[in-house]
Structures are given as C-alpha cells and as structure tokens.
Design a protein around this nucleic acid. Structure first.
Lengths: 341, 341
DNA sequence: TTGAAAAATGTAAGCGCTTTCATTATACTT
DNA sequence: AAGTATAATGAAAGCGCTTACATTTTTCAA
C-alpha cells in the first residue's frame, strides 16, 4: 500500500542564534546566555528571547554547542547486542538514572563480525560523548590499559579491570550457590547447562560449578558440562538451552538435576524436558521477570540496579574526575521456586 | 570492595587536524580529505597522514565534523521504554540494518512523566541526527503535522500518519484472526485479555476482537474484555496478564477461551491458570522468541523485520528526499501451538 | 621538449555556538 | 547629585572541522 501526499507546510529555515539575536535586538552572546540559563540576563530580555525562539522553533544545535563548549552532554553505552534480556534490563536502569540528570544517551552496538577493540577505540576517538558505560565488553588487560590514553571516563558493567570503575556480579559465587544447593539436596549428578565456553561469564560460572563439587567432596565429572550447538548470542538463547537439555537427557540419563547458565536457556531446557517427557530440578540464572511467572528457580542478578548504579558512578566521576576508582561487586542471590520442587 | 589505583599512563592531548597536518607537512585540507576518503589525495600522502594519525590516536571529532559538514551521520530512534520485548526486537532489526551502513544510532527514551510531544520536539530541534525512527510513539494528527516544520526525515514504526513514511502491523486484523479462530473452533465465550484501554494497540486489537464476534454472528458481550490493574508499561507485563486472567477465571467462569493482547501477558495468564488449576485455550500476540518454547499459540508480528525495513526506508529517504511517502502495513499471522490444543 | 589537461595540494571562509573581556546601563550609597 | 558597585550587554576570538576556489605539481600527447 503506497500513498503519496503533498504538504504545503512551511519548513523551518533552521534558524540560528543570529536570527534570534536579530529579531530580539540583542547580541548573540545574550541569546546564548538565555539558553544556558546564565543568571546575568534581565528578565525582560530573557522573556523576549524565549518568546521569539519559541515562535520560530529555535533550539541550540547540539554540534555547535558541543564544539564550542567542548561538552556533549551525552554518555555512550557500548553493548554487544541490544536484543538480549540482560542488556535490556541494564539499559533500563541506565535510562532511569539518566532521566534525572541532563544527559543524553547514545547506544553503540559492537558488531560481532569486526574486531571489538577497534570498534571500542572508534567510540572513544570520536569524542562524541563525555563518558562511556561498557556493558559486558570483555577485552584483554593490555587493551583496557590502552584505552586510558583517550582520557575519557569509563565505567565497566559486568567486567573487571582495575584501571576503571566497575560494577559487576560475582559469577563464580552465583554458580557456586546454585550448584551447592542442588548437591546438598542430595542430587549427586548435577549437570551444568552451559553456553559457548569462551564467553566470559561462562568461564567463571563454570569455575563456581566446579568449586561447589570440590567443596561437596563429590568427584567432578567433566562430561557433566554440556552446551548446545548454536552459537548465536554465545548460546544464551532458548534454542541453545533446548539443544543442551536434549543432549543431557538422552546422553546422560543419570543426571538428576541441572544448573543452567541463564534463564532464557532454561526456558528452552524446560521445553526439552517436556518434549522428552522427563523432569529434573532446574536452576536458572539472571532472574528475568519471566522467571517468577514460569516458576523458575534462579540466581538473581540485580541487572537494573547495576545499570542504575554504574550510571550514577559515571556521573560522579564526570563531576569529580579525581575521585578514587571503585569496584563494586554484587553478590547474586538464590531464588527458589517451583522448578526445584 | 573499593580499590585505588594510580596509572602513569600518558594521556592523549586530543590532537586535532592541525597537529596531524603539521607532523605530516601538509595542509589541514589534505588531512580532512584523507579522513573523508576523497580520492584526490596521492597514495603517498594518504599513507603518511594515516600513519601519523594512528600513531597519535587521532580521529575527527564528531561535533566539529557535524558542524562543518552539516551532517551528523547519526540516526535517532525514539522509543517509549527500552525494556520491552517489542522495542528490543525492533531495535535489533534497526541495528542489523545500520551495521551495514555508516550510521551511528542514538536512542532517545521518552519519559512517561513528561509531555511526549515536547520531548519529541526537543529531539528534532537539537538537530543531532539526520533522521528519526519513531517506535510506537503515538501523537495526535495535529502534532504529527507540526513536526513537518523541522524538516527532518522521519519514519514511523507501529504508528500511522499520512505525512511520514510508516511501517506498521494491522492490529485490528491480528486480533480478528485470533478471535475468529477461537470462535470457529466452537468456543462461544471467548474473552480478550486486554491492557490499558487507552493504549493505541489495544484500541485496534479490541476493534478486531469485536469485528470477529460480529462476523461470527455471535452477540458481543462487553464484559468479556478484561484487563489487570497494574498500569506499568500500559499493562503489557506478566503481572498485568496474571491479574487479568485471575479475574477472568474467578469472575467469568463461563469463558471458554482467551485472546491475549501480548505474549508477555500470556506468560502471566498461563501462571494464573496453573495457580487456579484451570486451563483454557489461549492465543498470545507478538510471537516473541519465548512463545515457541512455551508452546504458546500467537499472532506473529515481524518485529525485527519492521525495524530492519523501516531503517532501510529512512536511509532511502535520506539519500533521496523527494521520494514518495510510503506506508507499509504488515499482516500478522496466526501461529498455532500447544496452548490452543 | 612543450603545453594543456588532470591530479594534488593549499588558502581561507565559514559552520553555530561559548566565553572572556570590555563596555554600558542600572542601582545603591552618602 | 555625584560616585561607585553591580548588573546587563556586546564585540570578537575561537572550538575543529569541511569545502569552494586558487594554486602548484604531475602526467602525457604531439
């Protein structure tokens, strides 16, 4: 369905500070002052300027302001993929915080195809924002270090590097708690439904899984860690969970319970159990909103809080560049629901 | 856990085009040409400039470029809330498209508290981007019309207004299909699990629901439309669905099947049925990835495609401002799964 | 070799703002 | 009323880039 339509609308000639100054009979400096809320402008003048600006729909141009003042009033969030529950929640928290402060948010998406580091560098080089929030971006020590030269405030979320502020969750601990719980319940063969093994969170969760076994004095069997075959989103998908659970159920029938690397995978796993008409206790990871309604036991990560807090942290640093670097680590919490009944 | 750490890193002095020109022994115009991939620069010069730029970590500043060239290379997506499955998917599609083209994405979040129109105007006035994608932003005819004066390309997603390109889904049709299916299956009392009634999608879905009744020759009973009490996200939440289904099951025991305004509400509704130990056929709306794994019958909206296509459309208009305005309307599709078995 | 066309480079004028410093108008004191 | 402190305003220099136009260098046909 295609429609054509002609409008006799009067376009705005993208007026500038000069136009406003002219019409108001003042200098551009005064107009600038009005828009920057400087208090040394008489009320009369301010009203006149504002009235004219409103009439012609004027508003300072972001670029010109940025160039002249060397401030952009923008913070950039760098994420691997937007369409993922974790990032979505974190971004929500960031928004919440930003709404109170006068910053604009730019989201920069790292494409999986190209080199992460150079994409990150690109963001910093452009200098289009005053500070950056890096969400689940994992780089080598050396690479993080190299970013210091751009001298722009950075707060890491879900990653740790001593040179920048960071906000993360103790993944090892989360996995440990879930596994320990299952082991203590008396299940001796607890599997880990994993994802792409090179992914950062998987590494530490696997460690926690192992540690729980060790501390419980139960022999650790490597083959109990299984993941699906799809690598899209590092396997953190319903599909990935489904595939993995099918493997577990068919190839390791002795498994009595399962710790799952994410709630979204757990959804797939649940389906697999249903399809294969089996049922074993399951613990997810994240506590996305769905989990509660699906009766999924899980490890809660305060995703929204993390975004909120990290943003606060970044803003603090913007206002006080010399403040000490801080590392905040949340401890995840075990939430018990039906799936472990 | 707080850590302090001192780095003896050498910050970059934010070099400019002048510094590069100096070191390379060329004029700033030449440096500019190199970074804009103009082909009238000798290979020797280009290599030298690039080498020096790399050495000092130089990259053109977005603001200065934007000001001088009057182009920002940025498109802005305006959304009501990020943390919502629909927007998330649409944004994913936008990203996919943008990754191929050389545009940066800025996401602007409309806060629920303040006036939508003025927030939208703000985005346009700043002129920080070349074009805008409005996702599920609903304004009055007059308001949309007023935006023409800013003379910046806009593509609407999930909204219709004749003056701008738009990409939407026929909500009325979607609801109609779901309801008709249920009615034809022989359920005479089909309820609609709704959300905040003033929300745009609800209006048209309700219409489709009604139409299906009319066409089936079954008397329409207003009390069959029920929604939860929570208004967060206009009621499009698990909680909203749960509340509504509880009402249906307890107050309208004669209901035999249910059409649900979104998959996410359906998740809550499923839980309610389980808690109350009842079970009626259910059809959701959206077809989020989860739906497949939950066995939820639903009305599929090609969310990702919509984002992808709308972005393509906007880019087309950017490149050819005089192209005819187009309205694209997707027809949603009924997907049958377990929940209607 | 010469001269014209083509390629490479440079000069300089903005882009639309902010901000310092100088100037003028206003308010207040005695 | 005169003098001074203070508030309001203006002039002008830049912020770091792009780009039209001018100039210089290179290329190549005859």
């Amino acid at each position: 369905m295609i429609g054509i339509c002609v409008f006799n609308s009067v376009f705005i000639l993208a007026s500038t500070i000069y136009d406003i100054a002219d019409k108001a009979g003042v200098s551009i400096a005064t107009v600038s002052r009005v828009f920057n809320n400087r208090n040394n402008v008489s009320e009369r003048t301010r009203d006149k300027v504002l009235a004219i600006a409103k009439e012609v729909g004027y508003h300072p141009q972001a670029n010109a302001q940025g160039l002249a003042s060397r401030k952009t009033n923008t913070i950039t969030a760098v994420v691997p993929v937007i369409s993922n529950y974790f990032f979505m929640e974190v971004l929500g928290g960031i928004q919440d915080k930003l709404n109170d402060h006068n910053y604009e948010l730019t989201i920069y998406n790292i494409s999986a195809g190209k080199d992460t580091f150079s994409q990150v560098e690109h963001v910093l080089k452009r200098r289009a924002s005053e500070g950056c929030l890096f969400i689940s971006i994992h780089l080598e020590q050396e690479e993080w270090k190299a970013l210091h030269r751009y001298n722009i405030p950075i707060t890491l979320i879900d990653e740790f590097y001593e040179g920048f502020d960071s906000v993360s969750v103790d993944n090892q601990q989360g996995a440990y708690r879930a596994t320990k719980y299952l082991l203590h319940r008396g299940f001796s063969r607890v599997a880990m439904l994993s994802a792409v093994s090179t992914s950062k969170p998987i590494e530490s969760r696997l460690e926690g899984f192992r540690n729980a076994y060790k501390d419980a004095g139960v022999d650790f069997d490597h083959s109990l860690v299984v993941s699906g075959d799809s690598v899209y989103r590092d396997g953190f998908t319903e599909r990935g969970g489904y595939e993995a659970m099918v493997k577990i159920l068919t190839m390791k029938p002795e498994v009595e319970a399962c710790f799952c690397a994410s709630d979204i995978q757990a959804v797939g796993a649940l389906k697999a159990m249903q399809d294969l008409d089996k049922n074993i206790p399951l613990i997810g990871y994240d506590d996305i909103e769905l989990a509660e309604y699906m009766g999924l036991s899980t490890i809660r990560q305060p995703m929204r809080d993390m975004g909120f807090f990290a943003t606060q942290n970044l803003i603090d640093r913007l206002e006080n560049p010399k403040k000490a670097i801080s590392q905040t680590i949340y401890t995840p919490e075990l939430i018990l629901r039906n799936s472990t009944e």
